[in-house]
Design a protein around this nucleic acid. Structure first.
Length: 555
RNA sequence: GGCUCAGUGGAGAAGUGGUCUAACUCACAGCCCUCUCAAGGCUGCAUUCACGGGUUCGAAACCCGUCUGAGCUACCA
C-alpha cells in the first residue's frame, strides 16, 4: 500500500466503491439521435428567479424538442444560504409555468435512475471520486486557514500577481502524504483541493454553443473540491453529477463562463468527455442609467411570484422569455398566432450573446394580446384560478354570478379584433366593478360624478330622463345608437362633430357629450366599454335606479 | 487591478463584404376611424450601426487601438 492510498483510506474510511462501480450504476443513456439531456440545477435559497425560469424554460424546450431528458437537480450544498422549503417552492413555481422536469427532484419523491437528485444525498459519489483522485495524487488535503489564505492574497496583490491558491502558493500541495496523514491524525482542519496542472500562461480554445469559439486562460487554481463540511463545491459537483447523470448539454447562466477552464480541466483529468456548454445571457435591468443583473433584492420582477400575484397569465411570461431566447420567435408568432408556442423550434445559434434589458412593457403587450384571444370561458377559468389563491375579493365577485361576470368580460370579445382591456387579472376589479350595485353605491356615496361643468343640472336631467324613456335596449347596436341620436337631437346635441362644427351656435354639444353624461351616470367614469353593451348588461331596472339616484344627487 | 465577453434606434433585435438611404416586434408621436376608452388602419421615429484608424473597388459586417458596459476573480452557487 502506498502512502497516497493510506491517505485516501484515512480520509474516506467508508468509501468502498470505485469509479468503475459508479460507471456501471449510471450507464450511458439509450436515447434516440439528437436527444438532449439537460438539467436545471437551482440552489434552494429562496423563490424562483425570473432568470432561473428562463434557464429552466430553455431546458424544458430542448427536452421537448428533441425528445430528450430534463433533469431537475437540487444544488443544496451551501447549507448556510439554504432556505427551508424552497426546493418545494421552486418546483411548484416551475410547474405553474408548465416547466416540469422529466426526471429528478420532485419534492417529496424522485424520479429516474440517475439519482439521488439532491446533491447533499450524493456525497458517497463525490467521496468515491475524490478518494480516487487522492490516490492518484490529483487531489490533496489543504490545511491553510482562512487567515493564512488572506495573508497570501495580500502578498499576491502587493506583488501584482493573480490572487488565489496555485503553484508555489498552494502550500499544502507540497506536503508529503505522510505529513498530511500526521496532520489529519493530529486533528487539523482541512479541505480537499484539486491539484491543477494548468498554467496561467496558456490559453485554451473552447466552443460554446451560444458564445461561439472562445479563447480562455487555462486554469491553474487549486480549487477546493470538498469543503470542510464534507460537501462538494459547485465545480466538483458539476463534474460528477453531469458526468454520471449523462448530461449532454449544460445550459447555465453566463456568470459561469469564466469558470469554464476549471471545468474543462476537471473533465480532462478524469478522462471523461465533457458535455456541450451553452452559456445563456443574463436578464438585465437599467438602474440609474447603468445595466446590472436583475436582482432578487432590488427588483420585484425578479421573482416569478410577482407575475403570479399580480395576475399575469402564465403564457405571457413564457412567451416573453421565448422572445428573449430566440428573437425570431416573434416573427414566427405573428404567423402562428394560435399555435402552441412549443411548436416553434429553438436553436442555440439564435440566442443573443448579451443580456437583454427586462421589458415589462413588452410583457404587458404580450399579455394583453393573449388575454384578448381567450374566449369567455377560458378567460374566466384562468381568472378564477388566479383569484382563488391571490384575490378573494375577485373570486367572490365572480362566484356570486358567473354568467353575469362572463357577460361583462365578454364585451367585444370572441371576435376578430377583440378589446384588449386587461393586461393582468389584477386590472379586472377596478375596470368592471361599476357593474355591481354594491360597488356602484360607493360611487354614489362619494359623489364623484365629474360632469362637464358646461352642462347645467337641467340639461343633465333632461338627457338622462329622455334617454330613460327611450332606452331601446331591444334594438341592435347600430339602431340603438341612431335612436339615441334622434332622442338627443331635440335637446340640442349634434349628431356628429361635423354638424357641430358647421353650426356651433345652434348646438350645446355633440352626441359625444350626451353619451358622456349617460356614461358618467351609469358607470361613475368618463370611459367605459361601449355604452350599448354596458346598458344591455345592466338592464332597464339598474339603469333606471342609477339615473334616479344621480338626478337626486345633483345640486 | 487581472481575465473573459459584449457594444446596431427609448427596449428586444435582423443583419455573416455589395440588393442597408438598416427588416420585424414593443414603446413613443401624429393622423384616420369613433359615443368615451380599449382596439384597428395609416404615417413618422438610426442619412447610420460606441469612437478613431486601417484592409478593400466597396464595411454595420474583417483587423488594430480607445472608450463604455457586463460577468468572474470564495470552503456561494
Amino acid at each position: 500500500m502506498t502512502d497516497l492510498e493510506r491517505l485516501a483510506d484515512l480520509i474516506f474510511k467508508d468509501v468502498d466503491e470505485t469509479i468503475e462501480d459508479l460507471e456501471k450504476r449510471y450507464p450511458k443513456r439509450n436515447l434516440k439521435d439528437g436527444a438532449i439531456v439537460c438539467r436545471f440545477a437551482p440552489s434552494p435559497t429562496g423563490f424562483l428567479h425570473s432568470g432561473s425560469l428562463f434557464t429552466a424554460l430553455v431546458c424544458k424546450k430542448f427536452q421537448k424538442q428533441t425528445d430528450g431528458v430534463f433533469i431537475l437537480r437540487l444544488e443544496d450544498t451551501d447549507t448556510k444560504r439554504e432556505i427551508e422549503g424552497s426546493g418545494e417552492r421552486l418546483l411548484k413555481e416551475l410547474s405553474l409555468f408548465d416547466v416540469v422536469p422529466t426526471e429528478g427532484y420532485y419534492g417529496t419523491y424522485e424520479k429516474g435512475e440517475y439519482g439521488p437528485y439532491k446533491q447533499s444525498q450524493r456525497f458517497m459519489i463525490y467521496n468515491t471520486v475524490i478518494k480516487e483522485l487522492i490516490r492518484r495524487g490529483d487531489a490533496y488535503p489543504c490545511f491553510l486557514s482562512e487567515d493564512e489564505l488572506n495573508e497570501i492574497r495580500k502578498k499576491q496583490e502587493m506583488n501584482k500577481e493573480n490572487p488565489g491558491c496555485y503553484g508555489k502558493y498552494a502550500l499544502s500541495s507540497f506536503l508529503t502524504p505522510l505529513e498530511a496523514i500526521n496532520r489529519i491524525q493530529n486533528g487539523d482542519k482541512y479541505v480537499i483541493r484539486f491539484r491543477s496542472k494548468g498554467s496561467h500562461q496558456n490559453k485554451i480554445k473552447v466552443h460554446d454553443l451560444i458564445k461561439g469559439d472562445l479563447e480562455l486562460t487555462e486554469n491553474d487554481q487549486h480549487i477546493v473540491i470538498l469543503k470542510s463540511d464534507g460537501l462538494p463545491t459547485y465545480h466538483f459537483a458539476h463534474l460528477c453529477d453531469d458526468h454520471f447523470m449523462r448530461t449532454t448539454h449544460v445550459t447555465r447562466g453566463e456568470e459561469w463562463l469564466s469558470s469554464l477552464p476549471i471545468h474543462i480541466e476537471l473533465f480532462e483529468r478524469m478522462g471523461w468527455e465533457a458535455p456541450l456548454y451553452a452559456h445563456l445571457p443574463v436578464i438585465m435591468k437599467l438602474d440609474e442609467g447603468k445595466r446590472r443583473k436583475l436582482s432578487k433584492r432590488l427588483d420585484k420582477e425578479a421573482a416569478v411570484s410577482f407575475f403570479l400575484e399580480s395576475g399575469y397569465p402564465k403564457q405571457a411570461l413564457i412567451e416573453y422569455l421565448f422572445t428573449l431566447a430566440n428573437s425570431n420567435f416573434e416573427e414566427w408568432r405573428l404567423e402562428h398566432m394560435d399555435d402552441d408556442i412549443y411548436n416553434f423550434n429553438f436553436s442555440f445559434e439564435k440566442f443573443s450573446v448579451d443580456g437583454a434589458l427586462f421589458d415589462i412593457e413588452k410583457i404587458n403587450n404580450i399579455s394583453k394580446e393573449r388575454l384578448s384571444r381567450l374566449n369567455k370561458k377560458e378567460f374566466t377559468d384562468q381568472v378564477l384560478s388566479y383569484a382563488h389563491t391571490y384575490n378573494s375579493e375577485l373570486e367572490q365577485l365572480i362566484l356570486r354570478d358567473r354568467d353575469y361576470f362572463e357577460s361583462i368580460i365578454n364585451i367585444e370579445r370572441e371576435k376578430e379584433n377583440p378589446r384588449k382591456d386587461y393586461t393582468k387579472f389584477e386590472d379586472i376589479i377596478p375596470f368592471i366593478s361599476f357593474f355591481y350595485d354594491d360597488y356602484y353605491e360607493n360611487i354614489i356615496k362619494n359623489n364623484i360624478f365629474e360632469f362637464n361643468p358646461k352642462f347645467s343640472k337641467e340639461i343633465i336631467d333632461k338627457v338622462l330622463l329622455n334617454h330613460l324613456d327611450n332606452l331601446g335596449l331591444d334594438l341592435n347596436e347600430e339602431e340603438w345608437f341612431n335612436n339615441l341620436k334622434s332622442v338627443m337631437k331635440p335637446l340640442g346635441f349634434a349628431q356628429n362633430k361635423k354638424e357641430m362644427r358647421e353650426n356651433p351656435d345652434f348646438y350645446q354639444g355633440t352626441i359625444g357629450d350626451a353619451s358622456e353624461i349617460i356614461r358618467i351616470t351609469l358607470t361613475g367614469r368618463r370611459s367605459s366599454p361601449n355604452l350599448y353593451y354596458v346598458e344591455k348588461i345592466l338592464g332597464k331596472q339598474k339603469i333606471e335606479s342609477r339615473i334616479k339616484k344621480v338626478t337626486n344627487l345633483l345640486p
